[in-house]
């Protein structure tokens, strides 16, 4: 579904990601792991098109999308739920959700999806007219997910969704992510905490200083001593 080939992304002259290749199969959850500063966010931004690669190509459903604008990629069905949630704090919950559907045109479908999101996240329904900046961290993450879903994506990129959430909320979040996957959305999940991510992922990549260090089936990776030692704290 998504294929990244030999991706190099630089900030100025400094490369943040070097020669990264990865593949996300349709219907799967693939996780991209790595320590802070490894290049995970940079990779997602390049897939979304907000950063231009210096080298490399990005294919989505077989189509080369490397030179497409972010708005065209959204239209093709890719959505990024950014690190730190990226909620519009001054806008209401509902306005945030509607912005998720910005690239869509059918009003009826948008209204219908909005109601579905409210069913999925009842807490957002209660707060639909509330300014989003007043939500708790967990609620904001739900809003970010809901906003991403409003684009009706086929591929969702989630950048550290569990960051800063209490363990109980993280469990709730991961149940939701699986639910989203079960509805047919393919997911590329970026996390620092490998333990939970490997639990739901089918496949995993580990980035280190901008390079792919390891990759393989989650089950296999979980049992590797190196992964255990560095990422699973065991």
């Amino acid at each position: 579904m998504l294929k990244v080939e030999g991706l190099t992304v630089k900030y100025g002259v400094i490369p943040a990601v070097v020669n990264v290749s990865l593949e996300v199969r349709e219907g799967q959850i693939v996780t991209l792991l790595g320590a802070n500063g490894a290049g995970k966010t940079t990779t997602l931004k390049a897939v979304m098109g907000v950063l231009r690669p210096a080298v490399g190509k990005i294919f989505y459903r077989g189509q080369d999308i490397t030179s497409l604008s972010p708005s065209l990629r959204v239209r093709l069905g890719i959505a990024l739920v950014p690190e730190g949630r990226g909620i519009f704090n001054r806008l209401t919950v509902e306005e945030n959700l509607l912005l998720g559907a910005y690239s869509r045109s059918s009003r009826e479908e948008i209204v219908k999806d909005l109601e579905e999101i409210y069913l999925l996240f009842p807490r957002l329904a209660e707060r639909r007219k509330q300014i989003a900046g007043t939500l708790s961290g967990g609620e904001q993450q739900m809003l970010a997910l809901g906003r991403g879903l409003m684009a009706r994506p086929q591929l969702m990129l989630l950048d550290e969704p569990s960051l800063g959430l209490a363990p109980l909320v993280v469990r709730e979040l991961y149940t939701l992510i699986e639910k989203i996957r079960d509805q047919g959305v393919t997911i590329l999940l970026v996390e620092q905490s490998a333990l939970v991510a490997l639990g739901i992922a089918d496949y995993a990549y580990v980035l280190e200083s901008g390079n792919v260090k390891l990759f393989g089936e989650s089950e296999v990776l979980k049992s590797l001593d190196e992964v255990k030692r560095v990422y699973l704290g065991g």
């Binding site: 979304m48 239209r75 509607l98 910005y102």
Partner: peptide, 21 residues
């Protein structure tokens, strides 16, 4: 819709771009 997008861009241009604006 455009007005909401305008406020979104004013608050956070980067994220607005992610929304496909």
């Amino acid at each position: 819709k455009m007005g909401i997008a305008m406020r979104a861009v004013a608050e956070n241009l980067e994220i607005a771009r992610l929304m496909g604006i």
